[in-house]
Amino acid sequence: MFQLEKHYEIHSEQIYQFLYFITFDVQLAEDLMQETFMRAYEARHSYHGDANVLTWLRTIARNIAYDYLKRGKRLRFFTLTKVKEEMAIELSAEQLVHIEEEKRELYRAIAGLKLNYRMAIVLRKIEGLSIKEAAEALGWNEAKVKNNTERGMLALKKAMGGRYDG
């Protein structure tokens, strides 16, 4: 049985991050994450425990993101300035600025990728899922995940002027 409060507490951050890297919009990712859990709750009777809950939630989140994009909504760029406090202590201000610039450049490059490339890279390279896990979450076969990840990484490297190694 799907327990909303329990799974929201455990998985909301991962679903949010997944949606953030698809939309690159803090508020939109939050809204889509909330919608994901609302739909999961409404469909809780269809979840029988045969699939991993996080995989099931990512599938719902992916479908919600696709629906949003199909409606022709434009995606906006973002600003990401999170720096962990312990990192701030160890690095100089100049180093922090350089790191933040590199992060913004990387995230802009990811945001510029085709949606399929972006989703494959987020799940495989950022969230660290296996090819099989990413295929389950995306509803793709493993070959499609592998191809979209490889092509996405090549496109990402090109977008960054050949400076990104994955």
Rank of each mutant, 00 (worst) to 15 (best):
2 F>R: 02
2 F>V: 03
3 Q>E: 12
4 L>V: 07
5 E>C: 05
6 K>R: 14
6 K>L: 15
10 I>W: 08
12 S>T: 04
12 S>L: 05
16 Y>M: 06
23 T>S: 15
24 F>Q: 01
27 Q>P: 00
29 A>L: 10
29 A>Q: 06
31 D>Q: 11
32 L>F: 07
32 L>M: 11
32 L>N: 01
33 M>P: 00
35 E>Q: 14
37 F>I: 04
43 A>H: 06
43 A>L: 14
46 S>C: 03
48 H>Y: 12
51 A>G: 03
51 A>F: 12
52 N>R: 13
53 V>D: 00
54 L>V: 05
54 L>G: 02
54 L>Y: 06
59 T>Y: 14
60 I>N: 03
61 A>S: 08
64 I>A: 03
66 Y>F: 12
67 D>H: 06
68 Y>Q: 02
68 Y>D: 01
71 R>E: 10
71 R>W: 09
76 R>Q: 13
80 L>K: 10
80 L>I: 08
80 L>A: 09
85 E>S: 12
86 E>C: 02
89 I>M: 04
90 E>Y: 13
90 E>R: 13
92 S>Q: 03
92 S>A: 05
93 A>Q: 09
94 E>G: 02
95 Q>C: 01
95 Q>A: 12
96 L>S: 00
96 L>Y: 01
97 V>H: 05
100 E>D: 04
101 E>S: 01
105 E>K: 15
108 R>E: 13
109 A>Y: 07
112 G>D: 00
114 K>V: 03
114 K>Q: 11
118 R>T: 08
118 R>W: 02
121 I>G: 03
121 I>E: 01
124 R>I: 14
125 K>E: 13
128 G>S: 09
128 G>W: 11
128 G>Y: 11
129 L>I: 01
130 S>T: 15
131 I>C: 02
137 A>P: 00
138 L>T: 03
141 N>T: 04
142 E>N: 08
147 N>V: 09
148 N>P: 00
149 T>V: 13
150 E>I: 15
151 R>N: 11
151 R>E: 09
155 A>N: 02
161 G>M: 10
161 G>W: 12
162 G>R: 09
163 R>C: 02
164 Y>H: 06
165 D>R: 14
165 D>S: 11
165 D>Y: 14
166 G>S: 07
166 G>F: 07
